[in-house]
């Protein structure tokens, strides 16, 4: 019992306090740097806007500068236009991602576990992966009876690869000793999946989803240039056609902010499911 009975409680508490103070200081520092970064981006934006107003040929686009754009954004927020504009896009991305996860995670686990399947799938998957999702557009339009169906298909096709490959890579990194110990304790395949494989690779799956979400959000806007009359992509197209450049700028900003927020959510989920201690 020698090594177990040793519990230096006092030192643990003080160490925890110091660690907490350090963490707070670190967070404040990170926040400060992030704000500075956003400030630099805003300054570049303002400088670009100023340049546009200086050139005769470009003056028509002066509304894209921070002033008019933010003013219009505030106006849109007050009139409650942001949510009706974003909700259809979020729904399409949600469905596309859900399909990509439902296909990518099981396939990734199989590929990670079964050598011959990995060899079999490697060439075709690499080939499919390198096809730009947007080049499926005409085929998607023909294959699906609704515009929404086609858009969701394009998002799923774009999002499935990072999820699949991240899952497979995570499975291959699983410590074989974990599986040996589990089999030794009488684990059936379903136990291995639920108690070993999925918890071990949760972080890899979420990292794949985070990458996939980034790609899906990028693919979304051009995909919504298709026939639909809702969503952020449609809003951009619509603003361009009506030469409302302040609205165009505001919509671009909304796309960026929502994408950033979604990415942050993914990052928080990754932190939540991470079991690695050195991961702070």
């Amino acid at each position: 019992m020698t090594d177990a009975a040793y519990t230096p409680d006092d030192t643990v508490v003080t160490e925890a306090d110091t660690a907490r103070a350090d963490a707070l200081r670190g967070m404040a520092r990170n926040l400060g740097i992030s704000m500075l970064g956003l400030g630099i981006l805003g300054a570049l934006w303002a400088f670009g806007g100023w340049l546009i107003t200086q050139s005769d040929g470009m003056r028509a686009f002066g509304q894209l500068a921070p002033g008019p754009t933010l003013e219009r954004l505030w106006d849109m927020i007050q009139r409650g236009e942001i949510w009706p504009m974003s909700a259809p896009s979020l729904e399409r991305v949600g469905w596309g991602l859900a399909i990509a996860i439902a296909a990518g995670v099981p396939m990734g686990i199989l590929i990670g576990r079964i050598g011959w399947l990995r060899d079999l799938c490697n060439a075709p998957f690499q080939l499919l992966r390198m096809i730009s999702p947007l080049s499926w557009m005409p085929i998607a339009v023909m294959a699906f009876s609704t515009w929404d169906g086609a858009i969701i298909f394009l998002i799923a096709v774009a999002a499935v690869w990072p999820i699949l490959f991240a899952t497979a890579a995570g499975v291959r990194r699983i410590d074989p000793a974990w599986l040996k110990v589990s089999r030794n304790l009488g684990a059936k395949p379903v136990h291995l999946l639920v108690y070993v494989i999925l918890p071990a690779i949760a972080q890899d799956i979420l990292t794949g989803i985070r990458l996939a979400l980034g790609i899906a959000w990028v693919v979304l806007v051009p995909a919504e240039y298709l026939g639909v009359s809702s969503g952020l992509g449609y809003a951009i197209n619509d603003a361009r056609d009506s030469l409302d450049y302040a609205r165009l700028g505001a919509t671009v900003l909304v796309i960026g902010v929502i994408g950033y927020a979604l990415d942050t959510l993914c990052m928080l989920a990754i932190k939540r499911f991470s079991w690695l201690r050195s991961d702070t």
Partner: peptide
Amino acid sequence: APSLFPWMTVAQNAALGLRFA
């Protein structure tokens, strides 16, 4: 090597065999 599961507590690790059975 003990090969404990790092995503579980001490008690959860100790209970694995009972769970599997």
